[in-house]
Computed example of a mutant assay.
Amino acid sequence: MGAKRYELNEAQWVKISPLLPGKAGDAGRTAADNRLFVNGCLWVLRSGAHWCDLPERYGKWKTVHRRFSRWCHAGVWERVFTALTADRDNQYLMIDSTIVRAHQQAAGGKGGLKNQALGRSRGGLTTKIHMLADTLGRPLRFIITAGQAGDVTQAPALLQGQTGEAVLADKAYDSNALRAIIADMGATAVIPSNRTRKVIIPHDINVYKQRNRIERCFCRLKHFRRFATRYDRRTSHFAGFIHLAAATIWNQ
């Protein structure tokens, strides 16, 4: 678990370091240990271990955890991720979602399950991660909801302000309202028709095959254990880990 493979290499650090707070000229204290801190957060993200198991080389775990929390609330991780997505490929936009199990320690967050995007079902506590991806299947935007939330309900927010030639999604997103939103974008809806439709709406089968890229992206993201399983009580902390994992995909 303490292997260096969890840490940023030199090329990755050079790319991400200008996006972090604490640089010379920034307001507040200069953070000379940003690299060590980010590597410590990556260690927890990848390993799925408790914060208290953080190796000593990263510093006192309570200090690292407190700083991670501050960056989550300040939106630092999301801003870093957003900055890295500037070099996107917008020919196709893809939307999909995945359900992750929430560990029992994720229950009991302030505001109850609803306010912390947790749902309860036969399988236990779950959270759903809704994602927008570019042509290459790289993540562009996330929305976190309780596990029972419908996929199509979050699609308009994922697509808001986006442009592309086509939007690819599976039949769970087949709705007239969403198709109208996509048409207003000037894009083509590449979505298979649900069986309940009386008149089947054709879609480009060859283009639709590209949708497997967003599925592969979810598989890559789930190599980060704190993405694959939710351990965090606060949604803001879980979102911080999601954006850090996504930033790592863009920073390779």
Rank of each mutant, 00 (worst) to 15 (best):
V64S: 02
N34W: 03
V44M: 04
Y58M: 07
L36H: 10
G25W: 01
A49N: 11
Q116E: 11
S97Q: 10
F37P: 00
G28T: 01
R66I: 02
G40V: 06
P21M: 11
N39T: 11
S97Y: 06
L20W: 04
V38P: 02
L20R: 01
P55H: 09
Q12K: 07
W43V: 11
I16G: 01
A32D: 08
G59L: 03
A86K: 12
H103D: 15
N90P: 12
H50Q: 15
N39W: 05
W71N: 03
A31H: 11
W51G: 05
V100D: 03
Y58K: 05
S47R: 05
R79W: 10
Y58G: 02
Q105G: 06
A74L: 13
S69P: 01
W51K: 03
E56T: 05
S69M: 06
W77F: 14
R35V: 14
R35G: 05
E56A: 13
T85W: 08
K62H: 12
L20T: 04
Q116T: 00
K23I: 09
Q116P: 03
W77Y: 13
L36E: 15
V64Q: 01
A32I: 03
G48E: 05
V76D: 00
G109M: 07
L45W: 01
K15L: 15
L36P: 00
L54H: 03
G48K: 02
T98E: 09
T63I: 10
G108S: 10
T63M: 06
G22L: 08
R57G: 00
Q104A: 13
K23T: 12
R46I: 14
G109P: 04
G108H: 08
W61Q: 07
M94I: 07
W71Q: 04
Q116G: 05
A24H: 08
S47V: 14
L19R: 01
Y58N: 04
Q105S: 15
C72R: 03
K114Q: 13
P55M: 06
L118V: 06
N115P: 03
C72G: 11
T82V: 14
A107L: 14
E56G: 12
N115L: 14
H103Y: 12
K60Q: 11
T85H: 10
Q105I: 14
N115K: 14
S17C: 12
Q105R: 12
A102W: 00
Y58T: 04
S17T: 11
L42G: 11
L36F: 10
Q105E: 13
E56K: 11
H73P: 00
W61C: 10
I95H: 05
E10D: 12
P21I: 15
T63A: 12
T63Y: 09
S47Q: 03
R70G: 01
W43D: 03
A83W: 01
A86L: 14
W61K: 06
G111R: 06
L19T: 07
A106S: 09
C52A: 15
S17P: 02
L93R: 07
Q91I: 02
R46P: 10
I99Q: 09
K15T: 15
